[in-house]
Design a protein around this nucleic acid. Structure first.
Lengths: 281, 281
DNA sequence: AGCTAGCCTGTAGCAGAACTACAAACCCCT
DNA sequence: AGGGGTTTGTAGTTCTGCTACAGGCTAGCT
């Protein structure tokens, strides 16, 4: 929100810019103020404040105030999220964390839940489940394996293209392949996905919307961090992908017959995150 | 906020409780609604809604709306974060994401920055940097390797106890070992850390505060998600650990001479997350 | 059971907030 | 300098949030 104001600042009218400067200088004061006080402090008239809100894409002053409150709470105090060597350790850690948090919030709000539902349905019917990924996404794949396993669902994670090619080719009919990729353009992954599809299997893609992988997949769980600066996305999207895999595993374990996740159903402390007291490194 | 409402629910009056139930059921709708609509949907009169706001400690309806918006954004929407098999996919994914977001927010606010500063100082002087971890933390260690490498800092990740024991024993004097562990009680990790310390090396622990690992380490970056339910922490803490490692790598690269991170300094798009356009899987 | 005290709930009215229509002022261009 | 268009402020309207007050329900006592 603040970054947005900053970006649009130059394209605003003179008196609207006064409002923008005031908001950028003291963002905390916005939610508590009314139009009148804000207009007075900026030295402009009340409708100008409303026009400012419209100009930056809000639906009026109320909406603007709400968004500001939300933005401040979710921790986007630093306008320029660009880190610089002059930043203090505090500022730097704040920026990195804020970025990570913002990406998760976005991922939560933009996750297509109907795709999630069908993905779970596919997984329920699958005789075997494989998870593939390379590079950082390879780590996500392995993490997904952990998450599924913890919930009593056997899956196999593959990070080596030669291995997952073989595995994909030998998947029994109806199996599900979860393909994780930040870009959705990794050739080896696309190849294995097509092999699996040809063998009558389903592919659940956790990747960017509109990518080649998303195109060929049965279902795509996109977590687009459709934000201003896409240079962040590699770092941001891996966190979103981790969370999406957790959601998948959790949703699946909920739908399985009680026997397979009895350790979750029967212990009162059992919640997200697996068995309490389990000593995981 | 929502947890507060839930806690006070039984002490509310009958018609106020109707409002509470409505809010708990559909928290997202609150910020967009007015008193009138909320009152109508709850089947009560408008002043009752205001009385409800006062009862839960707010300064009126406006204040209540703002706090709700803030709460939702910072990621605590669903009261009972306990997932149940009756949850819809939306609710489930919301809960999982909210949990992840909340843990990152907490980690950000509780990260000890003075420890971060000294950690960076230690890393700057280190002739070699190793990162160890097991299980899920092993994946974090590998992810950290990625992050450091991307910023031009060579580090070695180890997830095998036998290997990192050898590596720790042969670390040159002044080297730094980053030990990642959710519990801080993994015997093998403690052993290698002690070997490194005996050899005149420093240990930066990314682990729970007060754990055995934290005790023996030179510096501890604790990311305690000191929350109500600690059964979630395994899942939550791994995200926090990932972020902490990112912060470490970023802070270090900022302090290094320009030559080693020139690709960051000279390209205008260079920001958190590495080189733009890099095709990472 | 009937009555009364006290609390809870809804109606009516008021102040102020957000927003809209219109007119004045400004700027730029010819 | 004058006229078109844009920008800004003024006046008015609607609706929102809030308060004062009165009716009704519950509960306890006789």
């Amino acid at each position: 929100m603040l970054t947005r104001i900053n970006a649009l600042r130059t394209r605003l009218r003179r008196s609207e810019r006064k409002v923008a400067d005031l908001v950028l200088e003291r963002p905390d004061d916005v939610p508590g103020s009314s139009i009148a006080t804000l207009a007075q402090r900026a030295g402009v008239s009340e409708p100008t404040v409303i026009r400012f809100c419209r100009a930056i894409g809000c639906n009026g002053f109320q909406d603007f105030k709400l968004r500001m409150a939300a933005g401040l709470a979710s921790g986007e105090p630093y306008v320029a999220s660009t880190v610089s060597s002059k930043d203090s350790p505090e500022a730097l850690s704040g920026k990195v964390f804020d970025r990570a948090i913002a990406s998760l919030v976005q991922a939560r709000n933009h996750l297509n839940t109907e795709a999630l539902t069908t993905a779970v349905d596919l997984l329920l019917d699958a005789p075997r489940i494989d998870v593939y990924g390379h590079g950082v996404s390879g780590l996500v794949a392995q993490d997904a394996q952990h998450a599924f396993l913890r919930l009593g669902i056997p899956v196999m994670a593959c990070t080596d293209p030669h291995i997952h090619r073989i595995s994909a080719a030998t998947l029994p009919h109806g199996s599900v392949l979860i393909a994780i990729s930040q870009t959705g353009r990794t050739a080896e992954l696309l190849c294995s996905a097509e092999l699996a599809l040809a063998a009558g299997c389903r592919v659940i893609a956790v990747t960017a919307c509109g990518s080649p992988l998303a195109e060929i997949s049965t279902v795509t769980l996109y977590t687009d961090v459709r934000d201003d600066t896409d240079s962040y996305t590699p770092m941001a999207s891996r966190l979103a992908h981790l969370a999406v895999c957790d959601v998948l595993a959790m949703a699946l374990s909920m739908r399985l017959p009680a026997a397979s996740n009895s350790h979750l159903q029967h212990t009162p402390e059992a919640r997200i995150g697996g068995l309490p007291g389990s000593t995981r490194a």
